[in-house]
Write a protein that binds this DNA or RNA. Structure first.
Lengths: 104, 104
DNA sequence: GCCACTATCTATAAACC
DNA sequence: TGGTTTATAGATAGTGG
């Protein structure tokens, strides 16, 4: 969008990259906020800038989103009950996440 | 965007809400992917539909994003070293997140 | 590195299959 | 219920201060 079309690849010029990051980051967070409100969806967005600064959005609270994410991952993992029904998921989220076990 | 303008408030009609969710979710994930590539930013997006289905995107891996998020939260919390320098953050992320302590 | 402008590009609300 | 089309709203690339 804008005066010219750009290819989706890393922007080499750091100044331009920073400007684009600022613009698109705010656009992304706005879209996230709108989606959560319009569709009553729980969601979270976490973004780190190149300089390590954090920007985020959570419809409820990030804690709630991450807890729910972890629960769904645990279910998908079926670490302790491999025979039980597996909830359908679109993508490959059934990989083990031992680093998150017992964190709550 | 579209034939008509809509207010940013919960869509009451469930069919319409579902359609909008589907469209805007894919748009959001696309934007997230573009931002991460264009600006070389590490990021993660987690979305739950009304029906509880999970959709997400992570530039690297969700594990990496969440670990980094936790680390930054811990720094900001300064739970064990309140006198040390506090990294600047835009928003109110310095609330305690005891539920995440010692999870890694 | 940040705000304003605006020509253009993209996302999407409705309509239609 | 899920794709396709189309007009329009919205996002943003390039530019200037």
């Amino acid at each position: 969008m804008g005066r010219g079309k750009i290819a989706i690849k890393r922007i080499n010029d750091s100044t331009n990259r920073q400007v684009t990051f600022s613009k698109r980051r705010s656009g992304l967070l706005k879209k996230a906020r709108e989606l959560s409100i319009l569709c009553d969806a729980e969601m979270g967005v976490i973004v780190f800038s190149c300089t390590g600064k954090l920007y985020d959005f959570a419809s409820s609270s990030m804690q709630s989103v991450l807890e729910r994410y972890k629960e769904l991952r645990d279910e998908g993992n079926q670490l302790f009950n491999p025979a039980s029904e597996i909830k359908s998921q679109d993508r490959s989220f059934r990989k083990s996440m031992p680093w998150m076990q017992r964190s709550l």
